[in-house]
Design a protein around this nucleic acid. Sequence first.
DNA 1: ACGCTCGCTGAGATTGCGCTGAGAGGACCT
DNA 2: AGGTCCTCTCAGCGCAATCTCAGCGAGCGT
Lengths: 225, 225
Amino acid sequence: MRVLIVEDERPLAETVRHGLTEDGFVVEVVHNGEDAVWAATEHNYDVIVLDIMLPKLNGYKVLEQIRENGVWTPVLMLTAKDGEYDQTDAFDLGADDYLTKPFSFLILVARLRALIRRGAPERPVVMTAGDLQLDPVRRRVERVGQEVTLTPREYGLLAYLMRHRGETVSKTEILENVWDPAFDGDPNVVEVYIRYLRLKLDAPFDRHAIETVRGMGYRLNPEGG
Amino acid sequence: MRVLIVEDERPLAETVRHGLTEDGFVVEVVHNGEDAVWAATEHNYDVIVLDIMLPKLNGYKVLEQIRENGVWTPVLMLTAKDGEYDQTDAFDLGADDYLTKPFSFLILVARLRALIRRGAPERPVVMTAGDLQLDPVRRRVERVGQEVTLTPREYGLLAYLMRHRGETVSKTEILENVWDPAFDGDPNVVEVYIRYLRLKLDAPFDRHAIETVRGMGYRLNPEGG
DNA sequence: ACGCTCGCTGAGATTGCGCTGAGAGGACCT
DNA sequence: AGGTCCTCTCAGCGCAATCTCAGCGAGCGT
């Protein structure tokens, strides 16, 4: 079970990390709001412990942003009894549970387990481009609601194009990000895989979502073609 | 607030009864597992305090039976540090919270209040995927209503897949969460155990709930295959 | 219109992932 | 000690997935 701790008081953060590690959790700690948003978005945690008093970005803002990024990991908030936001607010802020400082470590563990058991609610984290849909969590791709099976490379390539939909991306960029940063082979592979994608995503549906920008690279039409 | 105390050590039971009564709880005490099941089923309590070491029927069995009887009152378990079932098990056994003996009376009250506020879960905690059923409380797995016996590892793996049903989970994720966070052996174990599960859950029923996503990992079909 | 370049295409060659059966090692019970 | 059950290791095999290559056609500049 992976936990993200967001807490700027280092000693407290370390105590919690230590204890949770002993209880079999895999713990990651960040000390400010910006790092928290980044970590929560980039990695998959089972639960997040979020202090409300933070430098740069307070807990309330952090929660707002990670939810905006489509991350629905359960969040347990740490509130101070006399803080700007008191306990009663925590649920309104969208937290799944809260604890008032100071708290008992045992209770923290119990609550975390309860949250994990309850599990994350539905995550509507899907990228769309017209009638094209990509769900990174399920690793599923759909066109007009119909599932399309892709190989890992094909999927990686499409995911990259999707993330940059509307932009023109060069073959070099693609090679660096989808293949290997140190790739030095024939860029023709990209052409080949673009073709595979077109055969699976465009041809059967009589569309052309993937456009060729001659001399520049490729562009995924945000409208889906 | 009505509390049922299940505790065979009479002095401890009386101390707790006394303290809780002073705090405004309405307390009932029973001293063995059979009475506990009967009382929990016949009356409505707001919370149950359940010792795990009991004559006739241990706490684990008691919890199993009252849940089977459709009673979903929150349960706080009392575990001994060196007991047959240690703390980490308490949640797997379906408890909503737990305390390790010896415990502070103040903490007990705090936890009880927290449990009561949270209230009883409105639905039984069984996970389903098509005709596949996993009951974490009873540690039971059924397919088409027929029980399937799994070894601990197999069960752990299936439970993890079930919690993430519909998602594609990588072998690394599986190893970190089902095996050990610091596992560094051959990921082939996962393949082997996936096979065991398929032999027990899929083959006999001519289904394939567990899909391989080549290059990515595995996916449990939410429809059950 | 011509030539050159860039991208497209179809057909293999190669690689490495996941599957499988057998078996060793260890915990637990009788 | 013997037997059973569980966990994990290992090696080989088949095939999907990846990549290479060479010929072809279309776009672009002059």
